[in-house]
Design a binder for these strands. Sequence first.
DNA 1: TTTTACTTCGTTTTT
DNA 2: CGAAGTAAAA
Length: 750
Amino acid sequence: MSIYDTLNKEQKEAVLTTEGPLLLLAGAGSGKTRVLTHRIAYLIDQMGVNPWNILAITFTNKAAGEMRERVDQIVGFGADQVWVSTFHSTCVRILRRYIDKLGYDNHFTIYDTDDQKSIIKDVCKRQMIDTKTLKERSVLSAISSAKNELLSPTEYELQAMGDFQKKKIAACYKEYQRELKKSNALDFDDLLVMTVELLKSCPEVLNQYQERFRYIMVDEYQDTNTAQFELIRLLADKYRNLCVVGDDDQSIYKFRGANIRNILDYEKVYPEAKVIKLEQNYRSTGNILDVANAVIRNNRGRKEKTLWTAKEQGSRIHFRQFDNGYEEAEYISDDIAALVRKGQAHYGDCAILYRTNAQSRALEERLVVDGMPYKVVGGINFYARREIKDILAYLKTIDNGRDDLAVKRIINVPKRGIGNATLDKIQSYADMRGITFYQALEQMDQITSLGRAASKLEPFVKMIQVFKAKAKYYGIVDMIHEIMDTIDYGAYLQDLDDDDANDRMENVEEFLNRAVFYEQTHDEISLSEFLEEIALVADIDSLENGADRIVLMTLHSAKGLEFPCVYLAGMEDGLFPSYMCISSDDPGDLEEERRLAYVGITRAQEELTLTCARSRMIRGENQYNPVSRFVQEIPRELMDNTPPQTRAMEPGDFRPKAILRPRVTPKENKPYIAQGIGGLNKIAGITKGDSMETLGELEYREGDRVRHLKYGEGTVLQIAKEPRDYKVTVTFEKAGQKIMYASFAKLKKV
DNA sequence: TTTTACTTCGTTTTT
DNA sequence: CGAAGTAAAA
């Protein structure tokens, strides 16, 4: 009995088909990850393939991590040699080695969305673009789409002939790209574009990677865009051992450039391709599957397949309509509480999915009131938070002085009296000389126009130089401490907004934890590498498996996950499907939305509940929406409740009730912190289940002698109780007086 | 240069 | 409604 005997017929065939192009049409829950990992094992153990020659590509770090783990479990020897990674990390690894061939410095930085925005803002200003008619966001998304389609600025310009608007965008694209290059920076899309360009222009590099990656596997193939497709095609061109796995019914990233044709036309590009369909679902009950099939059936232009299950029919799915979003939230919260009470589920078995991130708020508020443990995935990215970005900008400046944006961000943080006027003077000097902003700073005595401002700049430059020198032998954690102490960041945060200071400090602490984790898990500590790993994290990556908490996330984030109990909230026409795509003239938009519904439904293993509200607060006003058309597509006999027919709104249909419920913001009263990214939900010294308000006792009092890791010994001058932490003032022998947070400072009584 | 008060605008979805 | 950006005042 081998590990391969546990596979069904189709799965087994997929595993044994090792040579040539292979398209795996894997329906939801059909065990595709299992097939992929077993296929890798089979290649290594049975076919004698060198693990070194295998590449497995996923979209998120989480997926990559899981695959890595499972491969490790079943492959006897050499599993760590298999290259398992995301598209973006793969590209970064290649570019770090060879991007100099494209005229970039191998030490490039990666710009995130915020960075992109500030660049494009500048560019638009210089191009004299009226941002009322042509918004920066649209320019940016046009550039992104162009890159996804591998269109260079010049090619885009050619295409724009005669189109006034497009010509403007083309000009922006060109200048935007020039700016990025000047800062030796790449945006997310560039990572792919540049890698493709590199492989196309350097045959010897291409050949090297073709030889290395003789067996290639791509997960979630339906979500690949043209650039990703081209990258894969190039790499696989020599040996043609390309196995792609995907489900056209789960293609939900068109807005991000995903090209559904990549999967639909796979057989045209690879005529010799073998196609295997995995249609047996191991995840959901028969009823849930029937619901999913009934909904997706309404889409045209899909590869025909019908999921089936050997599982029992299970209970009917649930449908409930409420007067407003608050009652919807209350119901879901109560329902989960009841399940848990009856012992039918754990919190961690339950997921609440919604269309837009904004919907999480009402749900969160309710869960907080009811004291339910939960965790929100998504929203504002952890690394996009102000306090984290500040520290990151310091690190980037120290690591790579060419990152103008980072330097400009921190030059007046904390306030040094350096304003826009000064910045502009330095920038124009830099432009004149063709040097970077930081280089201009270093030679500021040459900039005569600066006048008195120079005296404010000098200490800043000195400080960075000291940091740079220390960075040579300091670890990352030490470096962060050093920065924070030098600029007295805690005081700065408090000055900024006393209410938020605590939250922000917690985030900083979590950031430090990650730095510690990085140092512990890497033999060679490199600041650049650390910054790079951070740049490529997605929200979903943080979702840890073990925690017993209700998970809240968007339908998009939920792809690839499964839960015993799933709640789909906000099933209303206008919200889901969104108003945007109902009014769109492209019927494909609605189909994509329907696929999203399909993804949502197929996340459920046992119980599925659909909820909606008659009225809902959106953008500060009440909206009245009918029940989602996707609910109407579900046969009545599969539901425990009959949804009201969708019909046009008439006056007097709804009686909007005054909502008396006091609004509680999660911020003031949160048993579990709900923040963008996982792992965040711990506060030092407070274990899960504790309420934040029950502040632990401190082991020292005013007047006691204490020891600090960095400052050494001192005397506690004052302890002030704050909502979630103690603020301790200590006079240190060596370092002098410092004000710090107890949970952060980790003071020890002596 | 910094702070404050007022206006505007947005919601899909994110590696 | 709330965040974020802009104009005016200090």
